[in-house]
Design a protein around this nucleic acid. Structure first.
Length: 800
RNA sequence: GCCGGAGUGGCGGAAUAGGCAGACGCACAGGACUUAAAAUCCUGGGACCUAAAAAUCGUACCGGUUCAAGUCCGGUCUUCGGCACCA
């Protein structure tokens, strides 16, 4: 019989929908399971073949869980605010709302065609006012607690287009549209104080089950470093200059200091700085540099000495010069550093260039050639009371010294910066704040949420880079919620990360009008049991959403500290040329074509069989055909069907081993070997020429999560009860996993020389007897000096 | 620079509490079926030397531990990813 995938797939998708079997019921007595995938950005290009990789994987997990008796929540929605849609609107004049609705409709149809077992009753859309009402609500809570604030921050600005650009629009320091150099411009921006949660985000990682590399990347991103803050007195003044250092042990070697170009110290000592004009020039020079240029010049240090002002090294009591240089960042530590050229590479380069003396305080290197930065080896020298100590010991001693003199203490710093939480764009959530001349920044009252995005005809930013919303006069001009006098609305919108920072909460109770979700639903479903997505979202999206979730926990809104109990990540699907798929390379594969030509089950099977799930894998049209062939062989098993309520004795061991292998492999996301095991089993069945009903029933259920449509069809054919998707997951019988006899490899001097058939758990003596016969010609005339026998594994004979 | 992966046939990839390297699939070759082709089914296969077998060599490279190493240890190279003038 012909495998008519198209007919079968449509038939079962319709049946699933009519029976609504994938609906998740809050409060069901069954154990709950919350499986989550990253919701897509509904772009105009439609679904990418990369989407089904992660989606199929979690669909397999969800379907297996249902078969294991869980109440499964597997939801989907749309992360629909964002730049590409707005840019499309600018180009075509089609309103983002219209484009978004069309794109969502397209994506929905594509996802349905792939047979994912989503609960479509819980579909959400971040651009729906009923959704972003709660995004705004969370923002107001953050504002209330002082975690949302306005501050000057650097933005990418194109001086030619007079537009603020997102990072992805200014790659390589060049404007995406006109190609001119992007400059860093200071602008008042909304910021979220995520740094206040740095330690909590770090500690939370100990409680969750993420892949090790994911935890590593998050720790790296947070970037905790332990050190000390130390005050340096300024000669002839009561003022102090405070620095952060991780190497307080090298204090005796600090021969100069450097402050960032933006440091307020310059203003404070304006009158004493003899070369003030030169310093001002340097500040202007540094401000002009783009982020890109600053990164380019990591080797060549620039800077200017602040003449007429000296600091005093608190350890040596000696005067040292102060420089201003852009290799010191204003937004890390205190914006000022003590410089130990003998033991820090950057300080070394700076000192060499400016002819500043070096003092070796850790022996073990050659500081004429390069800075000696090894902290494991080396002994303190030229350091008075620290001499002879190791770095670790010296640090402890130094902390005591700082405390005694009251000039510093231990301090922990984080590389992570506060989150720039504003875009000068139209297609995003409006920030629900009103600016009043009398009352300052006033939050929009909660009962006036959602603050809806006004319908605009025109989406260009203003000449100065303000949001297009400044053109919406009627919307911008409002009254102050506090004093009732005329006031203006905030025109910046939220970044794309906003809606995705809490969407998993909304799924548990998506139609709630009184809360982001009911307590009952959150208590039942949270945390997310398993979250899979791309590696590219492991830092920003995940850190942002963990931050919001932890904040909501702290104010008593959500019941768990961490949102995601487990997180895995899939690799990219590359083009057939091994390169990342892109329009310009012309190596894009459209999933619609594959579904049309081979079927959804084949696409699903192929994407799971393509290779190691966690690694990138190149697409191969030929391999797709191989998977189609496999499913045809599966389908044709109905022609070899015979009666039987139990696995036949000669098949039992093979089948039960496959049950175990497939069950285990799915749990560890080794989908490729799970499918390989099913292929091996079907080869055995073909070799035998027949399959009985019991055997086929097991096979169908094992394959069902991976290729559900064909399995439903066959389940119906063999008279299975209900849906295969809801049938019981097969269990293996441990007794049936072992065979009566095994093939035992024989080695001589550790080299493979033959095989013998022996009973399981065969005695050493019996095995050796048999082995001697098998390899008689090879040991003839030699003496056996030693025999290594590992039961059921190997027999190694050592001869002389 | 720092941190973390990864290097296995023509290709995608299997196999690590050390125990038959190359499962499974693709591509390829041969056979069956067919007037023929496609499809399907069956068979074959790391390299080298062969009529065939045996032997030898083979998991990036060099060395080590062991009866036995893709797997462990020391070093080197290549490559991918993350962070990055972070003091």
């Amino acid at each position: 019989m012909k495998y008519n995938y198209s007919e079968i797939e449509q038939k079962w998708q319709k049946k699933w929908e009519e029976a609504n079997i994938f609906h998740a019921e809050t409060g069901s007595p069954k154990p709950k399971y919350y499986a989550l995938v990253e919701f897509p950005y509904p772009s105009g290009a439609g679904l990418h073949v990369g989407h089904p990789r992660g989606y199929t994987a979690m669909d397999i997990i969800s379907r297996k869980r249902r078969m294991e008796g869980y109440n499964v929540l597997f939801p989907i929605g749309w992360d629909a605010f964002g730049l590409p849609t707005e840019n499309y609107a600018l180009k075509t004049g089609i309103h983002p709302r219209v484009a978004t609705d069309a794109n969502i409709a397209h994506f929905r149809q594509q996802l349905k065609a792939l047979g994912f077992s989503f609960d479509w009753d819980r579909e959400i859309d971040t651009t729906d006012p009923n959704y972003y009402k709660w995004t705004q609500w969370i923002f107001l809570k953050l504002f209330e607690k002082g975690l949302a604030y306005k501050s000057k921050a650097l933005v990418n600005f194109c001086p030619n287009c007079k537009v603020v650009l997102a990072n992805e629009e200014s790659q390589g320091g060049v404007c995406d549209r006109c190609g001119s150099q992007v400059v860093q411009k200071e602008k008042e921006q909304w910021m979220l104080k995520i740094t206040a949660y740095a330690q909590k985000l770090l500690d939370g990682l100990d409680e969750v089950d993420y892949l090790p590399r994911i935890k590593m990347e998050q720790r790296n991103w947070i970037g905790r470093s332990e050190g000390a803050e130390i005050d340096f007195a300024i000669s002839g003044s009561d003022e102090k200059l405070r620095v952060f250092t991780t190497r307080c042990d090298t204090l005796f070697g600090a021969t100069f200091m450097v402050i960032s170009p933006e440091h307020q110290f310059v203003d404070k000592f304006k009158d004493r700085i003899e070369n003030y004009a030169e310093v001002e020039d340097y500040k202007a020079f540094a401000a002009k540099k783009s982020e890109f240029e600053r990164k380019m010049q990591t080797k060549d240090k620039t800077g200017v000495e602040l003449k007429g002002v000296k600091a005093i090294n608190p350890a040596t009591g000696k005067e040292i010069p102060i420089y201003i240089s852009d290799y010191v960042l204003n937004n890390y530590g205190t914006g000022a550093i003590m410089c130990v050229p003998a033991h820090d590479t950057r300080d070394w380069e700076f000192a060499k260039k400016f002819g500043i003396p070096m003092i070796e305080v850790i022996s073990g290197g050659d500081i004429e050639k390069e800075a000696f930065t090894d902290i494991e080896n080396g002994t303190l020298v030229n350091s008075d009371f620290l001499n002879g100590l190791t770095v670790k010991q010296a640090q402890e001693k130094m902390f005591e010294f700082l405390a005694e003199k009251n000039i510093g203490e231990k301090k922990i710093n984080y590389n992570m910066h506060d989150w720039v939480y504003a875009r000068q764009r139209y297609w995003g959530e409006p920030v629900p704040i009103v600016h009043c001349e009398h009352c300052g920044m006033v939050p929009v009252p909660y009962d006036q949420l959602p603050l809806e995005l006004p319908v605009l005809e025109q989406f260009r930013q203003s000449e100065t880079g303000e949001s297009p919303l400044v053109h919406a006069d009627e919307w911008v001009n409002t009254v102050c919620p506090k004093c009732g006098r005329p006031a203006k609305r905030e025109t910046d919108t939220m970044p794309q990360w906003a809606g995705s920072s809490w969407y998993f909460l909304r799924y548990v109770d998506p139609h709630n009008n009184d809360a982001l979700a009911s307590e009952e639903a959150m208590k039942y479903w949270l945390p997310v049991d398993w979250y899979n997505g791309g590696m590219e979202h492991v830092t920003r999206h995940m850190i942002y959403s963990r931050f919001w979730h932890r904040f909501l926990y702290d104010i008593g809104v959500v019941p768990t500290k961490e949102p995601y109990a487990k997180r895995t990540a899939h690799g990219l699907i590359l083009g057939e040329d091994g390169q990342k798929m892109s329009k310009s390379r012309g190596n894009i594969v459209n999933p619609d074509d594959i579904v049309r030509d081979y079927g959804a089950d084949t696409l699903r099977t192929y994407e799971m069989f393509i290779g190691d799930f966690e690694k990138p894998a190149p697409w191969s049209d030929d391999s797709v055909k191989g998977c189609k062939r496999f499913l045809e062989r599966v389908y044709n098993m109905t022609d070899m069907l015979i009666d039987g309520d139990e696995c036949r004795p000669d098949m039992a061991s093979k089948i039960h081993k496959t049950i175990k292998k497939v069950s285990d492999d799915i749990e560890s996301m080794k989908f490729n070997t799970a499918i390989a095991a099913l292929m091996t089993l079907i080869n055995d069945i073909y070799a035998k020429g027949s399959v009985n009903k019991a055997e086929l029933s097991i096979f169908i259920r094992l394959l069902c999560p991976i290729a559900p449509h064909i399995c439903e069809e066959m389940w119906e054919k063999i008279g299975g009860e209900g849906f295969a998707s809801m049938a019981e997951w097969p269990k293996f019988d441990a007794d049936k996993l072992v065979d009566d006899t095994i093939e035992l490899p024989i080695q001589i001097q550790g080299k493979m020389r033959g095989k013998i058939i022996v009973p399981v758990d065969c005695d050493e003596a019996d095995a050796v007897e048999l082995a001697k016969k098998e390899v008689a010609d090879k040991i003839e005339g030699k003496t056996i000096v030693k025999v290594i026998y590992i039961k059921n594994k190997i027999l190694n004979i050592i001869v002389k």
